[in-house]
């Protein structure tokens, strides 16, 4: 009986995880560069066909391209194609597709969480910044126009789905993802960098709402399973108690009434005991 209850409970836990992941996607639907996360589930079996319910097999981001939109921000950049911006914060390297940068006091381009774009530092006298499709950054100053100050390089990974999320839109490399590989934008078949644009999250709100409803119904269905298993366990227990009680009764009667010479009665009692013993096993 407990197997049914555990299976149903594992289903409830799985749907709970599912709901949390979808809710997180929805919450970040307006964050530039955010990548939708999906939780995947797999069935659990204890040898052969003995089903033990389900378990979360993993959560991974879907790196599908989000739509690019004009944002008008003076330092906004977006990647059209694969790859990540290389960012750092207090010496730690990470990767993001969120190109919503602002100019910090030290000349670096930082996102809202303080991650600074590597390779580029805007000089103090710059009045305008341009980023070409191949990542080449030029600045205009009052004296010169189009002074080259470096190039934004992108990174890619052998297994990007194994990157570790550092919260929001920033990821760190892991042994499973492999080390970063340089990716130079602008060449044929390579990504391009869009200046003045942002990549919207690839979360579809309508789809997420639908997923929430489905997960909610699945959760309720599993709760029904727990309830049924509980109810049946209660009844089963009641029968067991009744069997033990009548077994004790019969036993005491046989002990204290050996005078029951009526053979039918004796046979009936023996049969009752046999049934009781057999059913309580």
């Amino acid at each position: 009986m407990n197997r049914a209850m555990y299976a149903a409970a594992s289903g409830m836990a799985a749907q709970q995880t599912n709901l949390e992941v979808i809710a997180d996607n929805l919450a970040n639907a307006d964050v530039a560069g955010f990548k939708q996360v999906v939780a995947t589930f797999t069935d659990v079996n204890a040898g052969g066909s003995l089903g033990l319910g389900t378990a979360t097999s993993g959560k991974h981001p879907i790196f599908a391209q989000g739509k690019l939109m004009h944002s008008g921000g003076p330092f906004d950049i977006a990647i059209d194609g694969e790859g990540f911006f290389r960012v750092e914060r207090s010496g730690k390297h990470a990767y993001t597709r969120n190109g919503e940068f602002t100019r910090a006091a030290d000349g670096t381009l930082r996102n809202a969480d303080g991650w600074a774009l590597r390779d580029v530092r805007i000089p103090a006298d710059a009045v305008a910044v341009h980023v070409a499709a191949d990542g080449a950054v030029t600045v205009d100053t009052n004296a010169v126009t189009g002074r080259s100050i470096g190039r934004i390089r992108l990174a890619t990974f052998a297994a990007p789905e194994q990157l570790q999320p550092l919260g929001g839109t920033v990821f760190a490399a892991t042994p499973d993802s492999g080390p970063e590989r340089r990716l130079d934008a602008g060449h044929t078949g390579q990504p391009t960098i869009a200046f003045g644009m942002l990549e919207r999250s690839n979360v579809s709100i309508v789809e997420s709402m639908m997923q929430i409803l489905t997960a909610q119904r699945a959760y309720e269905a599993n709760a029904k399973g727990v309830q049924a298993a509980d109810e049946m366990q209660r009844i089963g227990l009641k029968i067991k108690i009744r069997i033990i009680r009548s077994y004790l009764l019969c036993f005491s009667e046989l002990l204290f009434a050996p005078l029951a010479r009526d053979s039918t009665l004796c046979a009936l009692k023996k049969r009752a005991i046999r049934v009781c013993v057999q059913d309580s096993n």
């Binding site: 049914a4 289903g11 799985a14 749907q15 599912n18 069935d43 033990l52 599993n222 399973g225 727990v226």
Partner: peptide
């Protein structure tokens, strides 16, 4: 219940 638990697998 095992089937139900795997509705999303």
């Amino acid at each position: 219940t095992h089937n139900l638990a795997n509705v999303a697998s």
